[in-house]
């Protein structure tokens, strides 16, 4: 067992973990932060994307023991301090960027990482950045639209196909 301490959504957490404990398991089962979803468990679907030290990673393919001291942010840490949705989350709701919602936590975390790197991405750049996030409901159009809207761009000309 390995002793780890990390910051999750601004709070310090610590515990003993097995070497094989994945970050996704630690978040979901250890901390009961079940907003982080595990879709494929093979690092392809992106539902488990969280931020570690400010960068988007797939939490199903990272060991907690390897992330001792890390600063982790999950979907539970994305809302505004008063509990209202962040502008990015609100854009997903406004533009119908989700149907079943399973992929949404990963989509929001990837989108937030994109907008931090590139505050006004083109549609092509948004689609490229979401290459590792799979959605089986929406066909992506409204997800892309929501992210473009959250970046302050006019999306009235993007058709809701």
């Amino acid at each position: 067992m390995t002793q780890v301490t990390m910051t999750v959504n601004g709070k310090s957490v610590s515990g003993k973990v097995e070497g094989r404990t994945l970050l996704a398991e630690f978040l979901r089962e250890g901390l009961r932060l079940t907003g982080t979803h595990v879709g494929c468990d093979t690092s392809q679907c992106g539902a488990c994307v969280v931020h570690v030290n400010g960068k988007a990673i797939k939490s199903c393919t990272a060991l907690v023991a390897d992330l001792d001291g890390a600063d982790v942010r999950t979907i539970e840490g994305m809302a505004n301090p008063d509990g209202s949705l962040s502008s990015l989350q609100q854009a997903f709701q406004d533009h119908h960027g989700l149907q079943c919602g399973f992929c949404t936590p990963g989509m929001v975390m990837s989108a937030a990482a994109l907008l931090k790197e590139n505050p006004k991405p083109t549609e092509h750049e948004v689609r490229g950045y979401l290459e590792g996030n799979i959605c089986r409901c929406t066909g992506y159009h409204n997800i892309v639209k929501a992210i473009m809207a959250a970046s302050g761009q006019d999306v009235s000309q993007i058709a809701a196909e």
Binding site: V49, K55, I57, K58, L114, E131, G132
Partner: peptide, 9 residues
Amino acid sequence: IGDPAVRNR
């Protein structure tokens, strides 16, 4: 290579 999250690890 891969996708953005994979490239970060």
